[in-house]
Write a protein that binds this DNA or RNA. Sequence first.
DNA 1: TAGTTAACTGAACACTTGTTCAAAACCAAG
DNA 2: CTTGGTTTTGAACAAGTGTTCAGTTAACTA
Lengths: 196, 196
Amino acid sequence: MARTIGSHSGKTGPRVRDAAMHLFAQRGFAAVSMRQIASEVGVQVGALYNYFPDKQTLLFELMRDHMLELLSAIHDKPETTPSSRLEVFVRFHITFHHKRPDAVFIAYMELRNLSPQNFEEIEALRRRYETVLEDILRAGLEANEFQVADTKITTLAIIAMLTGVSSWFRSKGRLSIADIKNQYWEMVQKSVCPKY
Amino acid sequence: MARTIGSHSGKTGPRVRDAAMHLFAQRGFAAVSMRQIASEVGVQVGALYNYFPDKQTLLFELMRDHMLELLSAIHDKPETTPSSRLEVFVRFHITFHHKRPDAVFIAYMELRNLSPQNFEEIEALRRRYETVLEDILRAGLEANEFQVADTKITTLAIIAMLTGVSSWFRSKGRLSIADIKNQYWEMVQKSVCPKY
DNA sequence: TAGTTAACTGAACACTTGTTCAAAACCAAG
DNA sequence: CTTGGTTTTGAACAAGTGTTCAGTTAACTA
């Protein structure tokens, strides 16, 4: 046997990426073998190498695509009030991450498995995202709408808190994702507001 | 050669654990081989098996010991005010985790590499720790000192935020760990306080 | 100092790892 | 229906995996 019926790179490529994403998220990059990915797709190992040069690049592309999606999905509107910009950010972050639990998990857990070069590229994208939030906090600070000791720290604190949601939230749970968004928005809002 | 000069289980055991902890934190459990650990200790692979039955148990013991240390170090004082209990908790969490970056990293990243049985045991310990915080929040709620929509969610949000510190804090940075603690305490305090 | 125990070596086990590539079989265009 | 290009197989590669254990030597005990 060689080429199989119905085989087409436009189909197999995405299926490989999906399978890799799922397996990496579930078991971790280092714990997943190329043969396991291939088997999930229903193909032999060798076939995978039509779609990327090596395992490292596969991981990198998954993470990069996720970060690019994230950056192109967030639309901050600097003309509105800092408070409403912050609310939009909080709700957006939870929504976006909730829809992609696997990608989120990988993006935060597999950084150390990137080559130094690839790591730098992903880190740069992450900093760009953090800057969106930090700009909002700075604007709120200047407008006396917020009171925060340090915008950089507050940025990291808020993002850590929001991202934590995807580590425990399950749709079957007691609360809906809408409840979660409301509660997190309230907490964030209070944590940055001036003490009367 | 066989037994080496100066060899003693009271020395080698801890050195093995230290080396494993460091390597697991840096590269991840699945990416570290027994031979790499042995080489770090300056010993042959076989010698490691004097100290644990297999790699899985080594990981488990590292995580379990960390959680037990955490639980025995936190001393909540229910007789004091909820607000001061919360402050003690926040400062304690940051201090404790800051002193053990490797153990923290492993405890939060390698859960999926535990066998189901070992996972359950670690999870139970983690829930016990979360309960300490949740009890404080509940007490504050009943005393009308705090205003939170859901103590469970707030617990997870606060812990995620606090634990995030160890993922970016470096002693060489702009801010001291004391600054960090003050700022986080202020954020947490505001996020749970009643709206004026 | 002799005998016992504890600690480690070194080699081996059977398997898995990422990656390569000629050959085979499919698909699409002329 | 043939030709040319695309996609996959199947086998192979060298290196690395966790784990075991008989044999050897250091440390301790009497």
